[in-house]
């Protein structure tokens, strides 16, 4: 991962910042150059930090850089503002994940480029503890 490529996504990744179309109000995460309505005017939009698990899987054979986290959960999450995101769900045994489970944003390490390379961070979600 090159440093500029990582750096340019820091804000959306660290703070869950997407964009809202100035014309039709559609919310995009990640941002997109053109909205499905054709508009190219957007304003920043802060996503909800809580939501629920819609569907999920348990990755047992991982891509490069993710091997030591297996088995881990990746889920399709519907946030409380209706926006959907894909994210790992952590701090829970894979067997305990349930459809509709309430989850919240958490800032986590994602992977690293070898022993001396860039350490990459981002968001994951975790169950909300009442």
């Amino acid at each position: 991962m090159s440093v500029p490529r990582y750096w340019r996504e820091e804000k959306p990744r660290y703070r869950l910042i997407g964009e809202e179309c100035a014309k039709c109000g559609a919310k995009h995460y990640p941002r997109t150059p053109v909205c499905s309505c054709g508009s190219t005017e957007f304003k920043p939009y802060k996503l909800a930090e809580t939501g629920k698990v819609e569907s999920w899987t348990v990755i047992r054979n991982a891509p490069l850089g993710y091997e030591r986290f297996t088995p881990y959960v990746v889920a399709l999450i519907e946030l409380d503002d209706g926006v959907r995101v894909m994210s790992q769900v952590v701090d829970v045994e894979p067997e305990a994940v349930k459809s509709g489970m309430k989850v919240e944003y958490t800032f986590r390490k994602v992977t690293e480029d070898g022993q001396a390379g860039l350490i990459q961070y981002g968001f994951k979600f975790r169950p909300i503890v009442d």
């Binding site: 990744r13 569907s55 999920w56 899987t57 990755i59 054979n61 881990y72 990746v74 894909m86 994602v110």
Partner: peptide, 22 residues
């Protein structure tokens, strides 16, 4: 898409699995 989908550590089979469960 690499920055927000592949970055989660999901695999092609994992994406199919999410659909399977749905």
């Amino acid at each position: 898409e690499q920055e927000y989908t592949s970055y989660t550590g999901v695999t092609k089979t994992g994406l199919s699995a999410i659909l399977h469960r749905l």
